[in-house]
Design a protein around this nucleic acid. Structure first.
Lengths: 182, 182
DNA sequence: ATGCTCATGTAATGAGTTACATGATTCA
DNA sequence: TGAATCATGTAACTCATTACATGAGCAT
């Protein structure tokens, strides 16, 4: 059976970049990878304890006597993290509430569906704008370019951009189709 | 607090089209909406019992004395289903294992990441092919065109197509970027 | 002194998956 | 007669979310 707890890998990944606390991890997720990954405290803290118990992370020396609990990754932890990275990608079972709703659109007035689709379009527009701004500042950052993670950070951002553009196009097309179909 | 159990709406939707059994619902999901929605028996049956208890579905007369339990939607059920349909779309918290993995690609050999991306590309290629075939047979089906659900069934399919095309493009671009970045 | 952010955690709950159990029917 | 499919369900488990509780430190 495939391991399903992805939170542990997200945490290992964040800690592997820089020793940090549970609070830091949450902040990092919210600020940096929020457009493709989310975590919440209620899950982070128990998983942190478990990872420590398994010896994949350690309380760092710097956090002794201090209130904040700073964790660092161990060799064992780095090994397990890399093993996960090397495992082939397995598609996740899809669940799109939007597409589910949409496919039963004939049960409610056309206007409501169109309104919903316009809302969806707006969401993608604002996301696209945000991603493009991020991309611009990223491409102009000479320091970032030298970072070994550069191409791997650009990729999710680029995904956000092309996916949003496609979704936008699809929204327009779908609204047209719904209007046209009597 | 928002209701989170989406399975109940998927079930109500399927039953609202045509009275059917839990087994039928599973078959329908696998065959017809599998590219954007999945269900499994272990969840369908308990939710069916619950929906019946709440009076949103009924055992149909035709299933009396029969082994198969055919359910039909009640007025109350149809009302609740439509209420859900009318509620504005709320974006789901994102969790892309692929993008998470990819963003830590610098921890493993480049070749592995590229191999993974090529696999992902293959997956999208075969999906795109499948969707296009479905689209073709759908567009050539004169009966389908007259169905009130027509535009709403075409939409998820079109989404699959544009999303796959975008993802494909992104795969190629990303592979290039990873190769180029020393 | 009031409110905000920092910071860590626990408990309850819910959603969904997987594995297991059972028996009927159909078809080769 | 044996395998595959039809058909319904339960139990155990895991993952994740939400709500709750608590307290420190800092600014106004």
């Amino acid at each position: 059976m495939a391991i399903k707890n992805k939170t542990r890998y997200a945490i290992l990944g964040v800690i592997s970049m820089k020793p940090c606390s549970g609070y830091d991890i949450k902040k990092f997720c919210d600020k940096t990878i929020s457009h493709f990954w989310n975590e919440n405290f209620g899950h982070i803290y128990p998983v942190l304890s478990q990872l420590e118990k398994e010896g994949l992370i350690n309380l760092s020396d710097s956090s002794e006597g201090c209130k904040r609990k700073i964790y660092e990754i161990t060799d064992k932890g780095r090994k397990e993290f890399c093993e996960w990275l090397m495992q082939p990608f397995e598609p996740q079972p899809p669940r799109s509430e939007l597409l589910l709703k949409l496919s039963f659109g004939n049960y409610i007035p056309k206007e409501n569906v169109i309104e919903m689709m316009k809302e969806v379009k707006k969401i993608h527009e604002s996301k696209l704008k945000e991603y493009k701004q991020m991309e611009e500042s990223f491409l102009n950052d000479e320091n970032a370019k030298k970072h070994p993670q550069y191409a791997y950070w650009l990729a999710p951002l680029r995904y956000g951009i092309v996916a949003s553009e496609a979704a936008l196009k699809w929204c327009e097309e779908t609204i047209e189709n719904i209007i046209r179909h009597e």
